[in-house]
Amino acid sequence: CHSECLGNCSQPDDPTKCVACRNFYLDGRCVETCPPPYYHFQDWRCVNFSFCQDLHHKCKNSRRQGCHQYVIHNNKCIPECPSGYTMNSSNLLCTPCLGPCPKVCHLLEGEKTIDSVTSAQELRGCTVINGSLIINIRGGNNLAAELEANLGLIEEISGYLKIRRSYALVSLSFFRKLRLIRGETLEIGNYSFYALDNQNLRQLWDWSKHNLTITQGKLFFHYNPKLCLSEIHKMEEVSGTKGRQERNDIALKTNGDQASCENELLKFSYIRTSFDKILLRWEPYWPPDFRDLLGFMLFYKEAPYQNVTEFDGQDACGSNSWTVVDIDPPLRSNDPKSQNHPGWLMRGLKPWTQYAIFVKTLVTFSDERRTYGAKSDIIYVQTDATNPSVPLDPISVSNSSSQIILKWKPPSDPNGNITHYLVFWERQAEDSELFELDYCLKGLKLPSRTWSPPFESEDSQKHNQSEYEDSAGECCSCPKTDSQILKELEESSFRKTFEDYLHNVVFVPRKT
């Protein structure tokens, strides 16, 4: 048989008469490798580009789960590009990614509803959504962080984005990388972005840091009482949809009607710091009717980097990364020049730590249904340095008659930039024990000054392991946590139920 035959053949030295091919099969003959313009397919066939392209389009058009959109890589027609490569849609070739590779997620039936953290986790790592997304989240724990972890990498949506009755959302900033909504599939009414009845939605994105392009379709905003109209108009300008909307697409009466839409800028007039305090004062603000001013709200939190936005980490279910302080308005003076500047002394802060701070007014709604208010920009203030805590785990070892090696770990709280350490030492008198000992005694162990690591005695271990207080009263049991108490109650309830079950099964009433 021919060298490319495997198993047997019907005619000697003829690659077209093989029972099976050793390498690849091409047009009725066995070959060692697939010549151009053919590609290896499933490690035994040679196919042309049209064959591989037909497989790709067949799966793409069917949208069946589990099928493969075949691509070409290293002269092979394979189910998908290997790690580190992405497909070129024009020629199906796998090309190296520039940075992290995109991950295209194809949605069944063309859309997916995100109504819980669990459903959001199914899209973790996706960068391109081939379909439409509907966000409908009523509640949950730590929602802002969970949504950002699972949806934060999405850069492109081919269909539309719909935010509907998501009472738990305060902001859409968890879509931190969303840059493009194509609108290839539109919501009824030709809408590519749809926001309806979101009672706590206050911000779409921080438009000073976020760009969003909507290729096709219109915007729809109705019944978002805490979303200011200025935020919607800003989205029109940034996304390129200005002029597409009709009169009733953006409701003037049901958007922002319960919001404090600040239209003035508060400026800080005085800032002073110490290692654990920050004193702030800002310019006074009074609405047209000074009785509408209820006070100020001061927001602050630790910020290692200057990239904080107002609604980071917030949701309507209680999660809030900001510390909020309510401040009463100052006494009002008739003389504008003698107006008191409101302020606040922030206490209990960490030394040498940068804080993000902003302040906003708290006002009631005027009778004319106009909203007044003022808010400052987010500023960054760093507390002063102070003395560091003591170095940890000092170790001293003498390696000769004239040297001592000293080692330690950095302090747990540096409280500033540590530039150097101060080492103090003092000579001590020799131990009298060394002169009084009889060095001729056998088995004498000389006193040693070398360091030995501390260890816990058996008594201390027994005390720590004991669940009861000892007789001397030195140790006591740790208080039980809520989960331990709940577990004990469940076990007790189970024992009672099981005992009742045994009584009912074992003891049967005697027939009379």
Rank of each mutant, 00 (worst) to 15 (best):
K103V: 05
K103L: 14
V104S: 12
V104H: 11
H106Y: 10
L108V: 10
L108C: 04
E109P: 05
T113M: 03
T113Q: 03
T113V: 04
I114P: 00
D115P: 07
V117C: 02
T118D: 04
S119H: 01
Q121I: 10
Q121N: 09
Q121K: 13
R124L: 14
S132F: 00
I134K: 02
I135R: 00
R138H: 09
L143N: 06
A144I: 15
A144V: 15
A144E: 15
A145E: 10
N150M: 10
L153I: 09
I157T: 01
S158E: 06
G159A: 06
G159L: 00
K162F: 03
K162W: 11
K162H: 12
R165L: 03
R165V: 09
R165M: 14
Y167Q: 04
V170R: 03
V170S: 03
L172A: 07
S173F: 06
F174P: 08
F175Q: 00
F175N: 00
F175M: 12
R176S: 12
R176Y: 05
R176P: 06
K177Q: 10
K177M: 05
K177G: 04
L178V: 09
R179A: 09
R179G: 13
L180T: 09
I181R: 00
I181A: 00
E184R: 05
T185H: 09
L186C: 15
E187H: 07
E187V: 06
I188G: 09
Y194M: 11
N200R: 04
Q203R: 10
Q203Y: 12
D206W: 06
S208M: 03
K209E: 08
K209D: 02
H210L: 09
H210T: 03
N211Y: 12
L212C: 04
T213S: 11
T213C: 11
I214W: 10
I214M: 11
T215Q: 10
T215Y: 11
Q216P: 02
L219E: 02
F221G: 03
Y223W: 15
Y223G: 08
N224M: 06
N224R: 00
K226V: 14
K226G: 06
L227F: 02
S230P: 12
I232S: 02
I232C: 11
I232N: 00
K234M: 04
M235I: 14
V238A: 06
V238L: 11
S239Y: 04
R244C: 08
Q245N: 14
Q245S: 09
E246R: 10
R247L: 11
R247W: 13
D249F: 05
D249Y: 08
A251Y: 10
A251K: 09
A251V: 13
L252Q: 10
L252P: 13
K253A: 08
N255C: 09
G256D: 03
G256H: 04
D257I: 06
Q258V: 14
Q258P: 14
A259F: 08
A259N: 05
C261E: 02
E262V: 08
N263E: 12
E264C: 05
E264H: 02
L265Y: 07
L266K: 00
L266C: 02
K267R: 13
F268W: 06
I271L: 06
S274D: 03
S274E: 09
F275S: 14
D276R: 02
K277S: 08
L279F: 07
L280K: 00
P284T: 15
Y285E: 01
W286Y: 06
W286G: 14
P287I: 08
P287R: 11
P287A: 02
D292E: 15
L298V: 15
L298I: 04
Y300R: 04
K301Q: 07
Y305I: 05
Q306A: 06
T309M: 11
F311P: 12
G313R: 11
D315G: 13
D315Q: 11
C317K: 02
C317F: 14
G318V: 05
S319M: 05
S319W: 01
S319G: 05
N320S: 05
S321R: 13
W322L: 03
V324T: 12
V325C: 09
D326I: 05
P329R: 12
P330L: 13
L331Y: 08
S333G: 11
S333R: 10
Q339D: 10
Q339L: 10
H341P: 10
H341Y: 09
H341Q: 12
P342Q: 09
P342V: 05
G343K: 09
G343L: 04
W344P: 01
L345R: 02
M346Q: 05
R347E: 13
R347Y: 07
R347H: 09
G348P: 09
L349S: 02
L349Q: 01
K350Q: 14
P351T: 03
P351H: 05
W352L: 11
T353Q: 07
T353C: 03
Q354P: 10
F358Y: 04
F358L: 02
F358R: 04
F358A: 07
L362I: 13
L362Y: 14
L362N: 01
V363A: 13
S366P: 13
D367T: 08
E368R: 14
R369D: 05
T371E: 02
T371Q: 15
Y372L: 06
I379L: 08
Q382T: 08
Q382M: 09
T383F: 00
T383L: 02
D384Q: 02
N387I: 07
N387L: 08
P391T: 03
D393T: 06
D393G: 04
D393P: 03
S400Y: 14
S400T: 07
S402F: 08
W408K: 01
K409L: 12
